[in-house]
Write a protein that binds this DNA or RNA. Structure first.
Lengths: 134, 134
DNA sequence: TTACTGTTTTGTAATGATTACAAATTCAGT
DNA sequence: ACTGAATTTGTAATCATTACAAAACAGTAA
């Protein structure tokens, strides 16, 4: 997706597409590696030396509230962020810490969800050792 | 489960059943409310004024490593702990913050898990509004 | 252009959970 | 009681995240 499209998406969700927000959102779109705030900050500050960590935090909050990205809380130490909002699960390797996606359809998950609660989001987090570390 | 049984369980898992560890484990067994370290500490320090928060942290680590309790990372701010190690999912109310259990059998979850990864633990976290807050 | 207004960004300081660490305590075995 | 290992305790450090206020920016009207 190019800058114009990203801009339009942000605007459609009531977020003013500033330089910084576009940069963060574009980074997440093109790096589907579940980066942390600090990873994104370190990458973008090279181009925008004036960028502030706070701006990255604020942007993550705005994008999350708008439903454009998700927070992945699989790591007890840091929040990870994911621009992939289609249905999928997450796997975290306990050796190398890498977070992987795996496919998962909402139709197979929905029957498992609890009755009587209005579920707005669900996440499936799995831990173990990835093929690369075995 | 009484003190003697709890003691035996700890010993079977290679954990020396000290006063403090027993107190923490007994608290988790009898309070299935997914308490945080601080909640447990505040409750137990009334009986054991010398109790240290560090001891509670250390005990949580030991019990987790032994597989006697699980960490619930559904709350981005704090870790919650759960003595229920039978299969179940978690629901967190975004209004009141309460974490609920809901039943879930391993047999229904297993087919959803990714191939090629050796999954050692899985968690299903759901968010929304609980019946009490609606 | 200039002044005005609301929004966004920035940098620093505060917060708060968690960990590191070393001294004090407990405890088993001699 | 004495020794040595394990455990607990309290304090200090770490580090992700948030709060906050000043500076920068964008748009609009005169």
């Amino acid at each position: 997706m190019n800058k114009e499209n990203l801009s339009a998406v942000l605007r459609q969700h009531g977020i003013c597409p500033t330089q910084q927000r576009l940069a963060v959102y574009a980074y997440l779109q093109s790096h589907r590696t579940h980066p942390t705030v600090d990873t994104v900050y370190q990458a973008l500050v090279k181009e925008q030396p004036s960028l502030s960590r706070t701006t990255v935090y604020n942007t993550m909050r705005a994008l999350t509230d708008a439903g454009l990205i998700r927070v992945v809380t699989i790591d007890p130490d840091e929040q990870h962020f994911d621009a992939g909002i289609e249905d999928h699960g997450h796997f975290r390797c306990s050796r190398c810490g890498t977070v992987y996606d795996f496919p998962l359809s909402a139709d197979t998950v929905r029957p498992l969800l609890p009755n009587g609660f209005s579920v707005t989001t669900w996440d499936i987090y799995t831990n173990g050792v990835c093929p690369h570390c075995q």
